[in-house]
Design a protein around this nucleic acid. Structure first.
Lengths: 189, 189
DNA sequence: GACATAAAAGCAAATAATATGCGTTAGACT
DNA sequence: AGTCTAACGCATATTATTTGCTTTTATGTC
């Protein structure tokens, strides 16, 4: 089962969803996710457990849903005046956010849900959208065109790979060198 | 809770572990993992559910444990005579295995367990070990030294990223171009 | 504005999974 | 052989999940 796609804003469904999401976020700050249960979330959100079971199916799917919502960017990348600056600023905050303990947990949650592919696809779409804005801006300035796919494959992917599979989070120097290398060899056809 | 590290081979613990792992593998072929339950696995393995709960904690951890075991390489990379050939052969089978439905599921399982970092770390260690063998072989032949980290960051990572986050599995052309690019610019200091 | 409709939530009871105390057994070590 | 310990089985208690049915709430129609 999966969360409904289109929910009228302001309706009862939306309110329930909001309070459940809020309850999850609140509880996750206080306790470990291995202790988290659906009845507990239901109580904290002021709804019946069966409501959650019917809408989200199980805990993994609910957590995935919450994580996707939290990973959704809320504004465009900062405009620093230069493409390089835009990219550096964006990746700095991206790495910072993603390699934090909650960030790692959210990424895992997104992948763990029953509909892992769907949720994960949405997340990478967010990332691409953000980078696309920077790419478009570069083109608008008349600078050399950026290769979005190269950025994803050679900067984003190694960063996320490290976050998911390595104990130590990616260092500042690490992602900067990835970005350097990518910008230096833009279209290695 | 986590599976014990060192278990004497041939002991009762080892037998229980083997039969539980086998039961999980067997059941996963027949039915969806969302239907899979611990009592069911216990019955199929001929043990008591409490045994599984005590040893593995929960289903996610058990699945992670099984997945790590299945991802453990059972032999060295094939020796094709050339480094390039070794890499191509190895990546061909790696991508094939990892992007299959069971492969994707296993990768997700590894990340989903309570001790995600530990298990994931083990998997990337397997990969590095395999690639290290190829690197050593290259050095032995007197060829140019390969950059293991570059292979992981710029070939393995984009492949795994695609498998985890994209709906469509990485194409043959995709990983070949990654490998090409990596071999052409080996030490881009 | 009252009324019908449908989707979603609440409630409560039934079922299933998970946790745990305690006795038993298998293997390790002397 | 005898002892010791870790792990298992069994039975029981607790907790989570599912489900049928009722009630609520928002929406669209007259």
């Amino acid at each position: 089962m999966v969360a409904r796609e289109s929910i009228r804003p302001g309706g009862r469904s939306a309110r329930v969803q909001a309070s459940v999401h809020a309850a999850v976020r609140r509880l996750l700050e206080v306790q470990d996710r291995s202790e988290l249960t659906i009845p507990q979330i239901a109580a904290a959100a002021g709804v019946t457990p069966s409501t959650i079971y019917r809408r989200w199916g199980d805990l993994a799917d609910l957590l995935a849903d919450v994580a996707v919502e939290r990973l959704r960017p809320d504004c465009d990348p900062a405009d620093t005046g230069s493409t390089r600056g835009d990219l550096e600023a964006w990746f700095a905050q991206y790495v910072d956010e993603m390699s934090s303990a909650p960030g790692r947990a959210m990424t895992r949650d997104v992948l763990a849900g029953t509909s892992g592919p769907r949720n994960a696809g949405q997340c990478v779409a967010f990332t691409r959208q953000q980078l696309q804005v920077i790419c478009d801006r570069a083109t608008g300035r008349g600078e050399a065109a950026l290769d979005l796919d190269a950025l994803v494959d050679h900067v984003v992917a190694p960063i996320v790979f490290r976050i998911l599979f390595d104990e130590v989070p990616p260092s500042d120097a690490f992602w900067r060198s990835l970005l350097d290398r990518c910008l230096r060899a833009p279209v290695a056809a």
